[in-house]
Lab assay of single mutants.
Amino acid sequence: MPEGSASLQLAVGDRVVYPNQGVCRVSAIDVKEVAGQKLTFVTMRREEDGAVVMVPEGKVLAIGVRKVASAE
């Protein structure tokens, strides 16, 4: 991610809310080559049905992904 860009610090195992998809758990953060460029992807699995969603790390905030609020 370019320096100075806002990002959401995620780790494998974090629970997040993905708008219009529901609650997901981060299952992987991997670098993949797409069209000759190396990009970091956040892979999330929906808790409702296990569907897998992959989002480029740089788009996580723009999409509206946020961490699940704690009970505290």
Rank of each mutant, 00 (worst) to 15 (best):
A35D: 14
T40K: 11
E48C: 06
V17T: 07
C24S: 01
D14A: 01
G64Q: 05
L10W: 04
A28N: 08
V12M: 02
V42F: 10
M1V: 12
C24Q: 00
A51T: 10
G50Y: 03
V65W: 04
G58K: 13
V12L: 06
K38M: 12
D49C: 01
C24R: 00
D30F: 14
M44Y: 02
E33F: 11
A11Y: 09
K67A: 07
I63M: 14
G58P: 07
P19M: 06
K59N: 10
G36V: 01
G36M: 02
D14M: 05
V42M: 03
L10M: 04
V31T: 12
K32G: 05
V55D: 03
M54T: 12
R45E: 13
V23L: 13
V17A: 06
Q9G: 08
K59F: 12
P2W: 08
A35H: 13
L8R: 05
L61D: 08
E47V: 06
L39C: 00
V42I: 14
S70K: 11
R45C: 02
V23I: 14
E47C: 02
S7F: 09
A11V: 13
A35N: 14
R25Y: 10
P2T: 12
V60Y: 07
P19Q: 06
Q9D: 11
Q9I: 12
A6Y: 11
A6D: 11
L39Q: 10
E72H: 13
D14L: 04
G58N: 15
E33Q: 09
A11N: 09
M1H: 14
R45F: 10
L8G: 08
F41G: 00
E57Q: 08
A62H: 07
V12H: 01
L8E: 08
D30M: 10
V55A: 07
R25T: 11
E3G: 11
E47D: 05
P2L: 12
A51C: 05
E33H: 08
D14H: 02
G64C: 08
Q37C: 01
P19V: 04
G13M: 01
S27W: 14
G4R: 06
M44G: 00
M54Q: 09
Q37I: 15
V34G: 02
R45A: 07
K67T: 06
M1R: 12
E33T: 10
E57G: 09
V60T: 04
Q21Y: 15
Y18K: 03
E72N: 11
R25I: 14
V53G: 02
R66P: 07
A62P: 04
L61I: 11
N20Q: 08
F41R: 01
A35F: 09
V17C: 00
F41N: 00
E48Q: 11
G22S: 05
E72R: 06
V23Y: 14
V53P: 01
T43F: 12
T43H: 07
E33N: 08
R15T: 09
G22A: 04
S70W: 10
Y18M: 13
G13F: 02
S70T: 11
M54W: 06
S27G: 03
N20D: 10
I29K: 03
P19K: 06
V42P: 00
L10K: 00
D49R: 01
S7Q: 11
G22N: 03
V23M: 10
G64S: 05
A28S: 14
G64I: 07
E72I: 15
V31N: 04
A62N: 06
C24P: 00
A69E: 14
V42D: 00
C24H: 09
V52H: 06
E3R: 02
V42G: 00
L39D: 04
V53Y: 15
E72Y: 09
G4K: 09
A69K: 07
Y18L: 09
Q21V: 15
G50W: 05
E72G: 11
A62I: 11
G22H: 04
A6G: 14
V52C: 02
E33A: 05
P2D: 11
